[in-house]
Design a protein around this nucleic acid. Sequence first.
DNA 1: CGGAATCCTCCTTGATACTG
DNA 2: CAGTATCAAGGAGGATTCCG
Lengths: 132, 132
Amino acid sequence: MATQTAAQRREQARRDYDAFLRGCPTNQLLDRISDKWVSLVVSALAAGPMRYSDLGRKIAGVSPKMLTQTLRSLERDGILSRTVTPSVPVRVDYELTPLGHSLALLLTAVKDWAETHIEQVHQARERYDGDN
Amino acid sequence: MATQTAAQRREQARRDYDAFLRGCPTNQLLDRISDKWVSLVVSALAAGPMRYSDLGRKIAGVSPKMLTQTLRSLERDGILSRTVTPSVPVRVDYELTPLGHSLALLLTAVKDWAETHIEQVHQARERYDGDN
DNA sequence: CGGAATCCTCCTTGATACTG
DNA sequence: CAGTATCAAGGAGGATTCCG
C-alpha cells in the first residue's frame, strides 16, 4: 500500500472538514439565513401571516419554484407553518412559528449591524479600489 | 405593442429586485458572512493575527485559490488588514481590523442563536420527515 | 390558486500546475 | 512562502409547462 499522495491527503482533509461543517450549527444556520430568499420571506412574515401568492407579489422577482422551495425548507426546519384551507380555490397560509419569530429577531440584529457598519465597508472599498 | 408574458413581467421585476437587493445593506452583509470560508477566517483571526499558511493549515480543506479570494474580499471590505514583510522568504500576516472584530462579535451572536436553537430545528426536521 | 416536473444555463468551486 | 493562471465539473437557480 503506497503512501498517500499529497493530493489524496488534501482530499481527505477536505472531506473531513466538509463533514465537520455540515455538523456545525453555526454553518447550518448561516447556510439557511443566507439563502437569497429566506431573509425576505421571514421578514415578510414577521408582520403577520400571508398567502402564497401574496408572498410572491410582495417578494417581487421570485419564481414560483424558488418560493415553494424556500417555504418548504423553512417549514421543514420549523421556522414557519403551512395551513391549507380546502376551499375552492384552495387557500394556503404561511405563518411564522415561535422559533421563526426568534429567528426574525436574530435577523434584526444582523440588519442593525449591517446598517450601522455598511458605510465603513463602503469607505474601505473605495479606499481599496482607489489605491491598488 | 404585445402584452408582456408573465415571465417577461417577472424578469423585469426580478431585475428591479436584484438591484434593490444589491443596494440593501442586510443582504450585502448576509452575502458576505454566508460565504463558506468567511466565518471560518474571521473566527480564526479573532484570536489573533495569522500568516497565510497558518490559516491554510487551520482551515483544513481550503484551496489556496479560495483562501486568497476570501482574504482579498475581506481586506477590500475593511474586515482585515494584510501586512507584507519583505524578508526572504516573504512573510504575510493577516489581522482583523476593529471593524472585523465588531463583525466577529456579530458572528458570536449568530453562533449563540444557532447553538441554542439547533436542537429545535433538528426536532422539527424529524417531525416533518416522519410525517410527510 | 398553489404548486410539481422537467430542462437548461450560468456561476461558483476546486484541482492542477506554475511563479516571484 | 504566498500566491496566480487555467480549466473542468457540479449544482443552484430560472424558464417553461402541466396538474389537483
